[in-house]
Design a binder for these strands. Sequence first.
DNA 1: CACCAGGCAAGTA
DNA 2: TACTTGCATGGT
Length: 216
Amino acid sequence: MTIVLLKAYDRMLKHFGPRHWWPAETPFEVIVGAILTQNTAWINVEKAIQNLKSARVLSLKGLLEMPEKNLSILIRPSGYFNLKAKRLKSMVHFIAETYDGDLEKMSQAPLQILRKQLLNVYGVGEETADSILLYALGKPIFVIDAYTRRILSRHHLAEPNMTYAQIQHLFMETLPTQVSLFREYHALIVETGKTYCRRTPRCSECPLFKWPPPPA
DNA sequence: CACCAGGCAAGTA
DNA sequence: TACTTGCATGGT
């Protein structure tokens, strides 16, 4: 499995080049984006983020002070706006209360402690928690998303009914524990997924096509 | 027009 | 534990 995953990485890297993810200017923006992108096309998240920037509230203090109702109007383009406004509020309250609003301080905490705390925040599940840990806080944990599942499944490397933890272990017990690798690998999976592995795929042009084991 | 996009929580059995 | 459903905009 080690060779298989590293080979897949090489192919995607050669095809797309380094991604330098996550597409955000600050760690705080990563956290906001991680919540806004839940089951949502990134293009719509960009519009919501831009609205927050234009309103000059894309900061912990800005979101803390803004009424939830106003916030929901700004993030409207990202969909589920009432729900996500509540989730963003929960997140900034958690950071303010637990780490004094200091992401630098937050990133000093141990990975497993942080992960449990994040999963305890309303609106944060495993993927969102791990995205924040890896891309905002620099913690070595591998992010599993819909594209990861779909790509592995189509190449017969995993069953569709495997749990998040099982897929995550597959990567983390196989790859060297390195933040830069985990970041780049997941970024390449998303790029490959977006371009070639949607529900209606373009397998023949995918960098992982005709590579063992091939898609059905 | 129908379908889908980088999930999650709450409800049901 | 293992499903099902609501949440919502914008692009194809």
